[in-house]
Every structure is written in structure tokens, then in C-alpha cells.
Design a protein around this nucleic acid. Sequence first.
DNA 1: TCATGTCAAGGCGTC
DNA 2: GACGCCTTGACATGA
Length: 364
Amino acid sequence: MKIGYPCVNETLECSAARTFRLASYTPERVVEAVAANLACLQQILEWNLAHGLLFFRMGSGIVPFGSHEINTFPWQTQFKSEFRAIGDFIKAHNMRVSFHPDQFVVLNSPDPGIVQRSIDELIYQGSLLDLMELDSTAKLQIHAGGAYGDKGSALARWVETFHTMLPEEVKVRLVVENDDRLYSLRECLSLHDETGVPILFDNFHHECLNYGEPMHEALRLAAATWHPTRDGVLMMDYSSQSLGERKGKHTDSLVPELFRGFLTDLGDLDVDMMLEIKDKEASAVKAIGILRELNLVPAAPAGYEPPVFAPRPSLTDAEGNQIVAAKKPRKKPAKPASATEAAPAASPKPRRAAKATPPSDPTL
DNA sequence: TCATGTCAAGGCGTC
DNA sequence: GACGCCTTGACATGA
């Protein structure tokens, strides 16, 4: 079992997601950003290795505007050796990596332009893995997409796009994740039946949306969609409900008792687990500690001292007991918990008014 | 220097 | 149809 966390290491000073505004695009800025991002990615992987974290979800912004038509700079050849070196490091230490293209990648959109941009993005992110010379166990993780009022037709479009439009190098890396609102494990299994695409299982999404499959059974159904040599062991996302937040909100920090309970459901099933938890590597280190106690992963090297993370401010109950880690303060003040606490603010600007490109009609 | 607004990209729910 | 929200790190800008 490998344990990982997504995209950002909050301990290190560097960022592997340096970017810039589209309006200020220049080839020089691409070079500068990619060089910095790859250097930071290497640092993150080294940090992870030192702490026994062998799974990592890379951020998709390694190459700013990597799939955008504006970016004609030949970064693939310019940074070929750097990509290969990172791939060599990953392979040498038996690590596993993935990408999770974000919500803009929608293969079942009725809008052909959105589908094409989605495919371009998948080709871009797949090409990063190809440049690292990683095999097809390094995956591209997406959701099934929108429902558009007719999930049957939407799923059929997904299958059609998969068979007719995706290049082979994307198909072998693509995995589909059950989501928490529209497409449960069952719908993803239907996609697997039609395409062979493996299902990346998200335990928390399954808790939010399911057809009554018990967790241990759901895990095994998802695991059976992974071809052992082509795909590797089941990748899964792990999280749990944040107390006092909306349904579906990830917790801020690993809850050890819930994690131990989940390991019971897991039983002897081998998985690689991505912790989708707010405090990133801090929870991953915590999880590794628990797994080492249970002898589910190799023991730490002699003399290993786990890192100490600064405690976060926390909410407490009337007795002063910690309930849940508080939100990490953001630059923008958090929204008040209730409307009655809201300040009499001036009417906010429309969120999308300043966008350069208007969004497509959501009613399509 | 710091705080705040905004950023390539989408879809859904509410009013 | 318009708008807010989801999520969220980092850039850009103005005070």
C-alpha cells in the first residue's frame, strides 16, 4: 500500500504550480515557470520519499497553459531531460504518481468545443507522464461529467467519446472516479463495462452517493476493474466528512479512529491511497504512522523522526475538547456561518463578469 | 508591503 | 436567464 496527498506540500517553501496570467504570456515566462515547477516537484518527491509517502498527485499546472493554443513553445523538447530525470527518480524508488484534471475536463458535454478542449487537456497531462517515461499504472483521474437532465444519454456520450475520440495513449491512463452528486460507483461500473476504464474509488463520495453497497463490497467491485499489470493496484481517494460543514466537505485533518475503521473495511485488499485532506502531507504522515503501527507498510528506517507540524487553531466544545481543526485562514475572509451574521456588504461584483471568455450556456 | 480581487476552462441549484 | 457556489493556490493590482 502506498499513501499520498495531492499537489501541494505545505512544509516546503517552493510551489510546483507557478504560473502567470494568460494576458502576460511569453515564451520566457513559460521557461521560467516550468523550470521552477519541475525543480519544486523534485523537492516534493524527495521529501515524500524521506517520509515514506510513495504516492503523489501532481498538479496539472506544471506547464502553464499546457493545452492552450497560445502555448506554442516546444517545452516538450526543451525540458525533455528534466522530465525524464523525475521519471527516473519515481521509478527508482517505486513511487506512483497521477494527475487529476479538474472540473473543466468534461468528456460527456453536449458542446463539442468543451469535449475537444477536454481531450486536449488529457493529451497534455498524459504527455507529461509519457515524457517521464512512466508506464500505464500512472493515471489520469477524471469524473464522469455532467448529467444534463438525462444521465443515460450523458453516459452514452461518455462512452462514444472514449471509443471514437480519445487517443490510445490517453485511454490506457484514464480512470474514472465515482462522485458525490451524480455518478455513483454503479454508474461508473457501467462505464467500465462499456469501455474497460478502471474505477478510481472514492470512499467519501461513496458514503455520499450509493445504491446501498457496503463499503467493503464497493471497494472490491472497484478493485476488480483494475488490470493488475496494465493498471496496477486500485487507486483510491480517502477522506471523511468535515463536522459542522455541508455534506461532502472534506475534513481538515485525518481522523485516526475513522481511518482505522476504514482499514477494517479494506481488509487484505491492496490499494494506493490518496488522502484528500486539507492539511496535505501532515495527514499523510499521520496515516503512515498508523499503518506502520499495524505493520501494513514497512517500518521506518532506524533513527527516523517524523516531522512535527505546527498545530492549527481548533474549535472546541464547552469543555474545551477539540471538535475539529479549524479552517486555515485564507487571504479572503471566510463566509459567515449564517446569513444573520453576514455584514451588510455592498452587492458583490458578478463572479464571471470579468472573464475574458464567456462560459458556455449551462442550460445546454 | 500588504490586502484584495481575479484567474483558461464547467455544471448545478436557486431565485 | 442571472447569479452563487463548488475549490483553492497563486498572480496582479491598487492602496
